[in-house]
């Protein structure tokens, strides 16, 4: 009796745990979860709209001065950090591109001599 229940439990557990592999084997769906946005642009927009909302609440008197300042400065800080991250990413991407270009040129130059022949 106990052995039977135990086996059923083990079977159920195996099904649950191994399901992702089964699914990917038989359904071959494209990645089920949408990739989170990488550039932080959506987050940045969210923060800006949050600040606008804060200011609206502050104007209508729903939010206390101290709370308003505190939350606004927090969001402002976050936005600045995101901006900086964006710029750093951009720079990195630019550098990578430049390197790619340089490498392509470096590689391309000697063959270009050859290439003229072929």
């Amino acid at each position: 009796m106990a052995g039977l229940v135990g086996a059923a439990l083990a079977l159920f557990v195996a099904l649950v745990v191994l399901y992702p592999f089964v699914r990917s084997r038989f359904w071959r769906e494209e990645s089920a979860t949408p990739k989170p946005p990488q550039d932080g642009q959506l987050e940045l927009d969210g923060i800006f709209s949050a600040i606008e909302e804060l200011e609206r609440q502050h104007r209508s008197g729903e939010l206390l001065e101290a709370d308003f300042q505190e939350q606004r400065s927090g969001y402002r800080q976050q936005a600045a950090l995101l901006l900086r991250e964006q710029e750093e990413r951009q720079q990195k991407a630019d550098q990578a591109l430049e390197q790619e270009v340089r490498r392509a040129r470096g590689v391309a130059e000697p063959p270009s001599a050859d290439g003229a022949v072929s």
Partner: peptide, 9 residues
């Protein structure tokens, strides 16, 4: 757009 980003921020 903002509704979507609300969750993220």
């Amino acid at each position: 757009l903002t509704a979507q980003t609300g969750r993220q921020s």
